[in-house]
């Protein structure tokens, strides 16, 4: 396999959610190498780590993000793709630490205070990470102070707020207001089942998207 073929195969594994050789899914790739083995192989064969990321793993995840937006795949497929992605990423860890591979930027995410739901936030994190960003996940039930502390630790980071409950939308508003009051230059993205573009305008956040790929498109554009 030449380098191009190998990178294309890594992308395909991520897109199809093929984690490693032993994983039974997808059935038609049973017994074949997955993103795990192929990423390791690529590095052994001398393909640069940033190529493995930028031309293998990221394009695979991007296809999944777009398909998710278009209702062609759903949460289970996205999670499988993310699992395959992270199986490949674990081989890149040393290169991130050494600085050989750089990410596009830092994206801080969290479910807003009062809200304990994490599926939407996790999906967002996986897809943004899969697009080549470093994601810092503050978890669920996150107060404004915690977001602001994370922004201070990571200057220039972008922030994504998630909520599922209608009642916690009001907390989302408070958090956006506080972040904007203290760190007015920070770009804040919002999302979650009850959130809408009208609501974003009302609370003064910078971007709303009803799907994670929309957030990726925005981040890639402004970064």
């Amino acid at each position: 396999m030449n380098p191009e073929e190998l990178l294309a195969k890594i992308a395909k594994c991520v897109e199809r959610g093929k984690v490693n050789k032993t994983s039974p899914y997808p059935p038609d790739l049973k017994g074949e190498d997955g993103a795990d083995e192929l990423s390791a192989q690529a590095l052994v064969e001398g393909i640069a780590a940033d190529q493995v990321l930028g031309q293998g793993l990221v394009p695979g995840m991007q296809i999944v993000g777009v398909k998710f937006r278009e209702n062609k795949v759903f949460v289970p497929e996205v999670l499988m793709a993310a699992k395959a992605m992270s199986a490949g990423m674990k081989h890149l860890k040393p290169y991130f630490q050494s600085g050989e591979v750089k990410r596009k930027g830092i994206f801080i995410i969290g479910t807003v205070m009062g809200d304990l739901h994490d599926i939407g936030k996790n999906l967002l994190g996986m897809i943004v990470e899969g697009a080549g960003w470093q994601v810092i996940d503050l978890g669920i039930d996150v107060p404004a102070a915690k977001f602001i502390a994370a922004i201070d630790e990571n200057p220039g980071a972008y922030v994504g707020l998630s909520c599922l409950l209608t009642t916690t939308m009001l907390n989302m508003e408070k958090i956006v207001t506080e972040i904007k009051a203290i760190r007015p230059d920070t770009k804040v993205l919002i999302g979650g089942a009850p959130v809408t573009e009208d609501f974003r305008q009302k609370i003064g956040a910078d971007w709303y998207s009803q799907d994670p790929q929309g957030a990726v498109d925005y981040l890639n554009k402004i970064a």
Binding site: P24, Y25, V75, P76, M80, K83, D118, N122
Partner: peptide, 10 residues
């Protein structure tokens, strides 16, 4: 938990 989604395949 959310593992249900992946376990549908695995």
């Amino acid at each position: 938990g959310t593992d249900i989604f992946m376990k549908m395949f695995e």
